[in-house]
Write a protein that binds this DNA or RNA. Structure first.
Lengths: 196, 196
DNA sequence: GTCTATACTTGGATAGAC
DNA sequence: GTCTATCCAAGTATAGAC
């Protein structure tokens, strides 16, 4: 029965993750979540205490991966490459979560206040890497604020429109599979060059 | 009376623009729009025929600016700089609209289908500039799809969180005003370098 | 054209049977 | 723990007075 409970909670979280990413928090109804999860309407309230808590539980379930590396700042370019690599890995492992996060950031939703708990440290790590790199002369940029936006924007924005993306996807890959390493390499190259 | 009508429609559009950007399309109610605009609830239906049409009217009202330049592709780097400059100008003139657009792109909302009418040409222009630059040897990149994402992400993403951005804002500027030209210059530099 | 009042629908959350 | 049935609040849209 403990197994069943976890099963249902997980089914709800999985369904909510996809729906929130696709239709937004407000655009998703508890009914849709429960239908998709194949469970009764009442179970969201029972297990989580409401729709909003499902949202937070989503990040609690996956957030530990957000921040597991400490950087030495001895070699900022190496640190930045590692940071980008980690972010790309997370993004490709949990695209819906990154999608949802991006939405919430953009609209400065009231839910962001609690999410900042996880994110603040992440942005600060990136900032420290940039600062260290600027002082050591390996990065060159003028505005810290805009540079952070450029980098995070490059890292986080992964969709124009399915119809358009598919055109380029097939032109790029010619049927080959797209590996995480390859995407990380593209991303690192673009960002690191942007800081020269 | 024609003046009054336009006045009310404009008041609704202005209110909707801010609210949609901030709370999303689904998160915004017609009541909020009308309250903010200072008009009666019924007027959204009367003038626009529903909430969804307010959304489209917003882009109809501002979209002409989206695409007013043709590029010769003789000098792709110059074209790219011009493209970025135009986008940054639009973004700083209409931040709410770009915000809203970004949300809709990310969640692939059903409203995107109509919006693609305006956007498709824009993305294709950027793509042509990149292609031309790649052939002429002034740009170097591997994946067209990801490169477009990087560029658009850098152009469009302008917010982490007010509390965080403000820290860097004041550190960057030390009280000075931030000009459109300066931001366009930062952005151009980051993106153009990223393509080397 | 604009307002107030209201009809109708949908959403979140709970009560109570199992 | 899970279900069905229901309550209540909130949303969109309209009817009808002015």
């Amino acid at each position: 029965m403990k197994q069943d409970e976890k099963d249902v909670k997980m089914k709800i979280l999985d369904a909510a993750k996809v729906l929130f990413a696709r239709k937004g928090f407000e655009g998703t109804t508890v009914r849709q979540i429960c239908d998709e999860a194949g469970v009764a309407l009442a179970l969201v309230s029972y297990h989580f205490g409401g729709k909003e808590n499902v949202f937070y539980a989503l990040f609690d379930a996956f957030a530990p991966d957000f921040l597991n590396t400490e950087y030495e700042l001895e070699n900022p370019e190496k640190d930045l490459r590692a940071f980008i690599g980690e972010f790309v890995r997370l993004r490709m492992a949990e695209p819906e979560l990154i999608n949802l996060l991006q939405q919430e950031i953009i609209m400065q939703s009231p839910r962001m206040e609690k999410l900042q708990r996880y994110l603040f440290a992440l942005w600060m790590q990136l900032r420290r890497i940039l600062e260290a790199g600027r002082e050591k002369g390996c990065f060159d940029f003028e505005s810290m604020k805009h540079t952070l936006h450029f980098i995070i924007g490059s890292l986080i924005f992964t969709r124009i429109a399915p119809s358009i993306d598919d055109i380029f996807e097939s032109a790029d890959m010619q049927g080959k599979e797209e590996s995480v390493e390859a995407v990380a390499a593209y991303t690192t190259r673009f960002i690191v060059n942007g800081l020269k």
